[in-house]
Design a protein around this nucleic acid. Sequence first.
DNA 1: CCAAAAGTGTTCGATTTACACCCATGC
DNA 2: GCATGGGTGTAAATCGAACACTTTTGG
Lengths: 240, 240
Amino acid sequence: MRGYVKYAFEPFAVTVDLAVLTLRAGALHVLLVERGQEPYLGHWALPGGFVLPDESAETAARRELAEETGLADVSGLHLEQLRTYSEPDRDPRMRVVSVAFAALLPDAPEPRGGGDAAQARWLPYDGARPLAFDHDRILADAQDRVGAKLEYTCLATAFCPPEFTLGELQQVYETVWGTGLDRPNFRRKVLATPGFVEPVPGGGARLTGGRGKPAALYRAGTATTLHPPLLRPPREGRSA
Amino acid sequence: MRGYVKYAFEPFAVTVDLAVLTLRAGALHVLLVERGQEPYLGHWALPGGFVLPDESAETAARRELAEETGLADVSGLHLEQLRTYSEPDRDPRMRVVSVAFAALLPDAPEPRGGGDAAQARWLPYDGARPLAFDHDRILADAQDRVGAKLEYTCLATAFCPPEFTLGELQQVYETVWGTGLDRPNFRRKVLATPGFVEPVPGGGARLTGGRGKPAALYRAGTATTLHPPLLRPPREGRSA
DNA sequence: CCAAAAGTGTTCGATTTACACCCATGC
DNA sequence: GCATGGGTGTAAATCGAACACTTTTGG
């Protein structure tokens, strides 16, 4: 039956592509690199690269994440496999199967070009289209997935620094979903979910808008799923 | 930067693995093949095979599904990418990256060995462990995913024949979740979701248990997501 | 004092749950 | 008749959206 002889089948190159998302100035931003060669010369693309012979896709993704962001420690960042893109014609040069990942960053230091020659930059989520290859699709899939997971997981804290206010957490939801939320109700839902957030021991507080009452600080809790879920407000235009 | 020269990097074999699930006699069953060679000789494994040079992983998965089940038409079956498994040591012979899929079947005809030599068989979900390679993990991931998607999508109808009763639909939920559901409430929730199911035009009915009132027949509707979701009853043992 | 942001309380209606009850069929 | 499974009704509890209100800060 299945011949496992090396090279009996056309070999595939296996790469990872990263949709690295963060929040800057209240807007969703993506880490992109400008292509310096054909095809898609001059287009923006998702950062990524080959999976090395002794790496899993996850390992390769975290290595690329460190290289492209220039961050010293990426071990705490949220990195999650999205899906694999394997259309035969997705790279015109050869057969490339790409495992796509979504990564979520709390703050957004301007990336320092790491090992790679191409400089990476943060761009607004809606800017810079069309991207190279099928990266528009990958990026859209990443945003879909993240938006959906905010509903029933504690993923939102991955966008926040180690200590954050409930207002900042709410902004994550509002920015990714593109909707407004009622602050009192949001607060209650979050605090009613055990393990979602926990108050910082000292009971610290921080001034957010320069004015107003300082907000209490929280840390991410240990829970990973949300019961009950924090559902997106239903889009208008129901077929009632 | 990235050298795209063929064979500049160790090539990977790319395969698909299928977790084909169905309901038989009120229990979840999986399609498995018995391995006829080392490694894992004699162990059960998920069906699967190589992605051919001109195929996407999705195309390869549907081809394998047809071959292994022996079904004439697999075009209507639910097939969904799960994730990709790429640990360097997952196959002791060579580097194999596998894109895993979950497939859902309504009924369970005993598989006729298709193009492949190894005979495929339906086994109860909990039987036949441990499976070959990392297939235990893949299968567990498939069940997790399916169980979760029942909550907020119309996926349950993928386990049902073209015409089904609400009792049968409820059994899908109960079997996959391993819990009991209140029939009157289940019925109302399903019917209150527009596009989940629609009554069969003639208004047919079918006797289910040999006794009792014949149940009305429904078809799968056009909706794909459930609003509001049909949440799993919370496991006992909350930290109240 | 005013504006702004955090935090608390309260109301009202929708949704969920739990259970009682009626209907149609085979034996 | 009675067991079995389908289908309807309903009251109580719960949840969630909406919004008024108080608190704490900077100007």
